[in-house]
Amino acid sequence: MAARHPGGALAVVLTAVLLASACAADRSAEAAPGENPPVELRAAHAQTPDHPYQVCGLEHMQRELADHPQANLSLEIFPSGQLGSNEENLEEIQAGSLDLSVPGLGSLTIFDDRIGALETAFSVEDQQELQDLLDGEIGGELIEPLRTTHNVRILGPLWALGSRHITANRPITSPDDLAGSAMRTQQTASSRATAEALGATPTPVDFGELYLALSQGLVQAQENPLVQIDTANLTEVQRYIMMTGHVVNVSILSMSESTYQELTDEQRQVLEAAADHAAAEVNQCIADAEEEILERWRATDAIEVVGEDELDMDAFREHAREVYTGEDSAYAEDWGELYLELTEESR
């Protein structure tokens, strides 16, 4: 399975880490014994200011850092893609020009294609299973090396975004119903593969343009978690939601390794505790929001909810398996072996 680890980028990152370490030593020398030098961290994300990632996650971290003034840490937040897309934020972290971001797990494929296998359709059953994978051998092979190869550290547990479901203007009960239909995707290979795994034709559309694309018929279907669908008011331009739950959608609190190395031991402890608590807050906020959204949709008939028991889930799973592992699969080389391993463990 091929992975992308550009030698030039590696040299740049290693140089940045060495320089950061030197700066940390200088700062420690300047600080009085037992004191922490002041550090203002900059965090960026692509969600809106009222999204759980902002309100329940990063703002929670802000408050917790303020509750530990001796650590001398503060956090400035830039929502709504002010500092770029998820992938651009990761590149900024790699370069050391941004401290923190909350991209989707699949965004890490800009560093290693193999990570896309963790965001494939029907590969895991729930977030806990995915967390266990990242905490184990698979995470040790795919995620942990990013600290040294790309200056990217994963801080704390996964942040929920919610399982992804299909919406369309007609009922979709099997992959055959999506044949020939344009489904909105992101620019990543894992997103394009998801559309194919569901039976549709992948069509890249920026999330900010999705409402218009659906209203004009440029795409006939899309797939997203409930919170994203509700936030973007997609129920105004889609009549059905099929509760496939085909991808466990999570994000990661990413941090510049060079920034992390500049912090004192006490600052690291305070920051890591805040990250742990923020993840728990986000996960609860997402769960509460999904419950409220479904209740509201059903009460107002905003969109017809088609339950999993009304869908041919076996057909969806078999079609996905063929797309990811079949003889003609464009994804088998990078993901096929791991996909088979994951799906066998999930059964």
Rank of each mutant, 00 (worst) to 15 (best):
residue 86 N to D: 13
residue 99 D to L: 09
residue 68 H to C: 14
residue 106 G to N: 15
residue 57 G to E: 02
residue 64 E to L: 14
residue 113 D to E: 15
residue 85 S to G: 07
residue 110 I to G: 06
residue 62 Q to I: 02
residue 95 A to E: 15
residue 100 L to P: 05
residue 69 P to N: 09
residue 105 L to Q: 08
residue 115 I to C: 02
residue 106 G to P: 06
residue 59 E to V: 01
residue 59 E to I: 00
residue 87 E to W: 01
residue 56 C to Q: 13
residue 83 L to D: 12
residue 98 L to H: 05
residue 60 H to N: 14
residue 70 Q to C: 02
residue 57 G to M: 10
residue 94 Q to R: 15
residue 106 G to D: 10
residue 79 P to C: 05
residue 100 L to Y: 03
residue 114 R to Q: 13
residue 68 H to M: 10
residue 107 S to V: 11
residue 71 A to M: 09
residue 80 S to N: 11
residue 59 E to K: 14
residue 57 G to C: 12
residue 58 L to C: 12
residue 70 Q to D: 10
residue 111 F to S: 01
residue 73 L to D: 06
residue 71 A to G: 08
residue 60 H to T: 15
residue 66 A to N: 10
residue 84 G to R: 12
residue 55 V to R: 14
residue 74 S to V: 04
residue 78 F to S: 07
residue 61 M to D: 02
residue 82 Q to E: 14
residue 84 G to M: 12
residue 74 S to G: 07
residue 76 E to S: 11
residue 82 Q to Y: 00
residue 79 P to K: 01
residue 81 G to I: 00
residue 106 G to Y: 07
residue 68 H to V: 15
residue 112 D to L: 06
residue 113 D to R: 07
residue 69 P to T: 06
residue 87 E to C: 04
residue 83 L to H: 13
residue 103 P to T: 11
residue 58 L to P: 08
residue 69 P to M: 08
residue 93 I to Q: 03
residue 115 I to P: 02
residue 75 L to M: 05
residue 73 L to S: 08
residue 115 I to K: 00
residue 88 E to V: 09
residue 63 R to Q: 11
residue 100 L to W: 02
residue 65 L to A: 03
residue 85 S to Q: 07
residue 110 I to V: 13
residue 79 P to Y: 09
